[in-house]
Simulated scan of single mutants.
Amino acid sequence: MAWFKKERDFFITPLVSNFLHFSKWLAALVVVLSHVRAVSFPSFDNLGESGIFWKLFYFITSLGHEAVIVFFVLSGYLIGGEILRGLNSGNFGRNT
């Protein structure tokens, strides 16, 4: 028996789990692209005339800080769910 009340099972469907993992991957990609842009590309002000692709690229890569937050929130949610599931089943911390 777990040390807390069992009010509900902590379960995510495989479809939702895949979506959350994909979202984490996408957030990590935005962070990487943000770092690459900061090191390898000029600032947007120095870019001059640019097409829609470059405007979109600079917009997406400007969301690097937000992507870090999304990555860590999703990681905490997924890891926390695994911990709660283990506590609920009584075999948290046991090697199975």
Score class of each variant (00 low, 15 high):
F4G: 09
E7W: 11
E7T: 14
I12H: 11
I12P: 05
T13G: 12
T13Q: 08
L15G: 09
L15Q: 13
V16W: 07
V16P: 00
V16M: 14
S17M: 15
N18R: 14
F19I: 15
L20G: 02
F22N: 08
S23E: 12
S23W: 05
K24L: 09
K24A: 10
L29I: 08
L29M: 08
V32K: 01
H35R: 13
V39P: 01
V39E: 10
F41H: 03
F44P: 04
D45F: 09
L47W: 07
G48V: 01
S50M: 13
F53Y: 14
K55D: 11
K55E: 08
F57E: 04
I60K: 02
S62H: 05
L63I: 04
G64Q: 05
G64I: 07
H65V: 15
H65R: 11
E66L: 13
E66R: 06
I69L: 11
V70T: 06
F71D: 04
F72C: 09
V73I: 12
V73D: 01
L74P: 02
L74M: 06
S75R: 13
G76R: 03
L78F: 01
E82P: 03
R85Q: 13
R85C: 07
G86N: 05
L87G: 00
S89D: 11
G90H: 00
T96Q: 05
T96E: 08
